[in-house]
């Protein structure tokens, strides 16, 4: 934990990214919808709507997507979105899952980038496809089966990243709730390291705990949480990528906060 270097950090700041864009030394991926991308994106970015990845997230499909985007095993990749970093987290995680070593999140959203006045373009860069291998990284993924066994272990912390009311209504037994909104700072997709460490310290989560994050259905919000944990150097974090939707479909046990009508406090 003490020895994390910048290259281990899952995020890259705007200043460094601008330099890399100039050097043309990275592959920049925009995971917003195609229309949004067409209206303007960070210079040199290519578009990968998240839906395309979610349509089939087998290792082979991810490999094909990477190759089509010109991402080889050695390519430095940076991903951004306009959804507080949750969609880009899911993409970076998928790349790392098939063994890609150098993929990072931009530490701001597209809107924040724009409001900083940085380069935007409507030009679509020409891409040559590349060759990418598959080298599955099983340590960063949790299945329902794995989670069910692991949660009996005292050193495992399951974190539900959905909003509080959804969590109160139903959650995986033993899970704690850190809503995804808690992970950001005012102007970045993630808190400062100090802020994040403080949150975990208050919650009594030790640095050597095994963490499993999950959210509603496809591992986006929990993907962001995965990188929030990685950003402070937690060594053992897994994403339960198919999340609560699968858990329910499998008819696994569910806990709820009983005897209170908390939904009626919401003004939604």
């Amino acid at each position: 934990m003490c020895c994390m270097t910048d290259s281990d950090m899952p995020v890259i700041d705007s200043k460094t990214l601008r330099q890399k864009i100039k050097e043309n030394s990275i592959r920049l991926v925009d995971v917003r919808r195609e229309q949004e991308y067409q209206q303007g994106h960070i210079t040199n970015a290519i578009n990968l709507p998240l839906a395309k990845l979610l349509a089939d997230d087998s290792a082979e499909a991810i490999q094909k997507i990477a190759q089509d985007l010109g991402i080889s095993d050695e390519t430095s990749v940076v991903v951004y979105d306009d959804t507080f970093g949750a969609l880009s987290s899911r993409v970076v995680w998928a790349l790392q899952y098939i063994g890609h070593k150098d993929a990072k999140l931009l530490d701001v959203t597209f809107s924040q980038w724009k409001s900083l006045g940085y380069e935007i373009s409507t030009e679509v860069p020409e891409i040559e496809s590349a060759i990418h291998s598959i080298n599955i990284n099983p340590d960063i993924m949790a299945t329902a089966e794995y989670l069910e066994k692991a949660k009996e272990n005292k050193n495992v912390v399951i974190i539900d990243n959905r909003e509080r009311l959804n969590y109160l209504e139903q959650h995986i037994p033993g899970a704690i709730n850190i809503p995804y909104r808690t992970l950001a700072s005012d102007d970045k997709i993630l808190r400062t390291k100090e802020g994040m460490k403080n949150l975990l310290k208050n919650r009594g989560i030790s640095e050597d705990a095994e963490i499993i994050t999950y959210c509603g259905s496809v591992g986006t919000l929990s993907g962001l949480a995965y990188y929030a944990m990685k950003s402070v150097g937690l060594p053992n974090v897994k994403l339960y990528v198919h999340s609560f939707k699968e858990w329910k479909n499998l008819e696994k046990p569910i806990d709820k906060q009983e005897n209170a009508n908390y939904w009626d406090l919401s003004a939604e």
């Binding site: 909003e163 009311l165 704690i176 909104r181 949150l199 009594g204 908390y262 406090l265 003004a267």
Partner: peptide, 26 residues
């Protein structure tokens, strides 16, 4: 309210503003 509560806040009869269902540790 979005970070630590239920995404809504509550205005009380005594001019306070309340955030409910906050994890004690937060």
């Amino acid at each position: 309210s979005e970070m630590y509560s239920i995404g809504s806040a509550h205005f009380s009869t005594r001019e306070n503003i309340q955030l409910h269902w906050v994890v004690l540790e937060d």
